[in-house]
């Protein structure tokens, strides 16, 4: 019994110390972070505008926008009691954005992981750890993550 508890405690502690991250991304899932949108590709519509558009949807309270070469990633959090209708919200948002900016391709996701990765990317860019090319690569990896099914 004691051995099990000790083992569990060790695992949890190890997990906590695994990565010393900056505060924002560590708490990204717990509170509203409102990360600055990222504009890797400078042409086309501004990410600020898209974020404004996304935040107009009343079920959404936190949005991260990343604009890359070909795609625009939109990650957001849904108010908890509206999570029952999450699939519908996702579809509506996708339709709305695609209608508004018909030239762009949108990747829309409510997944926490996608949001978290977008915040982490934002922080790494701020810290000067990644340049535009690497950032675009990171974006592609996030999009791939989103397209995995099961």
């Amino acid at each position: 019994m004691k051995a099990v508890i000790c083992l569990l405690a060790a695992v949890i502690l190890a997990g906590c110390n695994l990565q010393e991250e900056r505060k924002d991304s560590r708490l990204a899932l717990m509170k509203t972070t409102n990360p600055e949108p990222i504009q890797i590709e400078k042409d086309g519509v501004s990410v600020e505008k898209i974020r404004g558009e996304v935040e107009e949807v009343k079920e959404i309270y936190d949005a991260a926008v990343v604009k890359g070469d070909h795609n625009i990633l939109v990650a957001y959090k849904v108010r908890h009691l509206d999570r029952f209708r999450m699939k519908k919200i996702e579809k509506n948002l996708q339709d709305r954005l695609e209608k508004e900016y018909s030239k762009e391709t949108f990747i829309v996701s409510s997944d926490y992981k996608i949001f978290l990765e977008a915040v982490r990317l934002r922080e790494d860019i701020d810290a000067g750890k990644v340049n535009d090319k690497e950032a675009d690569k990171r974006l592609h990896r996030i999009i791939k993550l989103k397209q995995e099914l099961t």
């Binding site: 997990g15 695994l18 990565q19 926490y112 996608i114 993550l145 995995e148």
Partner: peptide, 17 residues
């Protein structure tokens, strides 16, 4: 689930397994 989302490459969808 959150442990897997935070420290490994799992999304909310895939972290279930």
């Amino acid at each position: 689930t959150y442990f897997f989302i935070y420290f490994f490459n799992f999304t909310e969808q895939t972290a279930g397994n």
